[in-house]
Nucleic acid binder design. Structure first.
Lengths: 322, 322
DNA sequence: TTGAAAGCGCTAACAA
DNA sequence: TTGTTAGCGCTTTCAA
């Protein structure tokens, strides 16, 4: 691929002059400008972004670390991040931790090797001291997205509060017995339990962690037959909800009549399911956009400023399943 | 971030020696090796991948260009690509063309600026002369994935044949009137129509292009009421199928009794839908893995070799919707 | 086994 | 307005 030096040779100017032309520096005579641009176009010149990055300024690279890109919610998030970054001329290095802390650690290192200008991450354990310490000692700014990390830049939906909203909704709809399906350290579960306790249903709450689908099937069967109070299941994300819906159908339990089901994330598919899935919506696009803009502002206008802990509202989307 | 030169200064050796140690060159005395490694560890040294890439060898960067990362199928594909690349030490620059040829063109340029070692792409128009020409004149090897581009490296499922399989399946199941929902240039549609014609149902085939959801709703309503032969709908992907299913439910048409619906891609959700979605499965993981390995072999062992046109079998997955 | 020197392609500072 | 010089952090000769 042709370089600036080569263009300089061909057009009989110095290499820095070529740089000036290609960077739109106005202090270049029109004739030279024309000659250089024509030559660059003719040879399909493409800037060597590595050389530019090496020389010190910006790499215009952003590291994006998510837990599972195959989950529609994160796929949508990645898409919005990519769009927002592109608009400002940044490209995305994408990594998938798969909820494995070792991967997370390794990918963070990889991203540093490429000297990314900044990092957007969905950490596995946003509240852990490790995450906090790690972020603090990095040289590139890190923004935690969709999770709340106290004291760090984070753009998130308050999962504790959202969990409480779900609890309230289920109780309002007349459900009296509850199950949470998801990871045990999920903050949604915390908020869910708290509110249920406040509402006087603490003791009937059962919280289960989804491991294999088979296990979930057995647990659901046990759980459902044990009682006659109106039961509802809060799934930590729409994917779990989809599986729960399917299992209940197999068990012959009709939703929402015999059991309520509510998901989380408001994934695209929820709107079309049968029954249409009640869920909790997060403003993905706004979250991605604001997070990217904040990160890029930090990058482009360095200087101390307090951490931005930006909470976005979660919206309960009641549909047919509750 | 600390550099090799800095480590050299601290350990009283030359910078190239530091390079040797960190690259595992055996011709270094144990004492020096120890000293250097200790220093690197202490200061959390991270290689500057830009400098390494600049100096000529490999960047260990792969450009991945997909049409829509928020589509579960491509999200899954991206995930598998990322995993396969990681295993061999490569990272992913991800772009989303959103089915817009201008984006595709621009992103391909961006990727070249970062001097990626190779490109994996889901082209918008894999059969076009533009794509062919563009790929041919790039300096980095390009592998077309999930689409068949004749004469170029491509790892794909034969969509024409898959479309024919779907036609056969629907006819076998007793359907007699057909609708294709999807993009008009989709090769699946070509194969679908061909086979229907062969089977003597050519004239009753209606092919419609999905534009807005509202339009789809009106068209489906018109289409359904027009006739009494057993009708079936072939949706170009599972997302369309999901929407079709929902519209039919609104129209009070029961699936599969009054109308059959089949999707494409075997997205995760299909297994859990109500009714469970019949669809066509592509071996995503194998396709991604083989494509990545082929691309990396081209990168790591340069030299002419004929284009690899590797077709993978599509598997019809009959479930409850047909 | 180690070091000195050159150079990858670019930007930035300084001179002319 | 243009050119000269230096240097980013690394790998790669080539010498010692």
């Amino acid at each position: 691929m042709i370089t600036m030096a080569e263009i300089a040779r061909l057009t009989h100017v110095s290499q820095p002059t070529v740089s000036r032309v290609l960077n739109g520096n106005p202090k270049v005579s029109p004739e030279i400008r024309e000659r250089v641009l024509a030559c660059a176009r003719e040879h399909d010149y493409q800037l060597n972004a590595l050389a530019k990055g090496l020389q010190g300024s910006r790499t215009h690279l952003l590291g994006v670390l998510v837990t599972d890109i195959s989950n529609g919610f994160f796929a949508g998030l990645a898409k919005q991040i990519e769009i927002a970054a592109r608009e400002r001329g940044y490209s995305i290095l994408l990594f998938n931790s798969d909820y494995n802390p070792e991967n997370e650690q390794e990918y963070l290192d990889v991203v540093r090797r490429y000297r990314v200008d900044g990092i957007l991450a969905v950490p596995i354990r946003e509240t852990s001291a490790e995450w906090h310490d790690y972020v603090k000692k990095l040289d590139a700014p890190v923004v935690t997205i969709t999770r709340h990390a106290t004291g760090l830049d984070s753009f998130y939906v308050d999962h504790v509060q959202a969990g409480a909203q779900v609890a309230q909704h289920l109780v309002d709809r007349g459900y009296r017995r509850f199950l949470f399906v998801g990871k045990d350290y999920d903050s949604k579960c915390t908020g869910f339990r708290q509110r249920l306790t406040e509402l006087g249903f603490g003791s009937v709450t059962t919280n289960r962690v989804l491991k294999t689908e088979d296990q979930l099937r057995r647990e659901l069967a046990d759980w459902y037959t044990g009682d006659t109070a109106r039961p509802a299941i809060f799934a930590g994300n729409d994917i779990y909800a989809l599986q729960v819906l399917d299992i209940l159908r197999e068990l012959g339990v009709s939703v929402p009549e015999q059991a309520g089901v509510i998901g989380f994330d408001d994934t695209f598919m929820g709107r079309y399911l049968n029954p249409r899935l009640s869920t909790v919506s997060q403003p993905v696009s706004a979250m991605a956009r604001e997070a990217v803009n904040w990160l890029l502002d930090r990058i482009e206008h360095p200087g101390e400023r307090p951490a931005m802990e930006r909470a976005f509202p979660a919206t309960l989307v009641p549909r047919e399943s509750t």
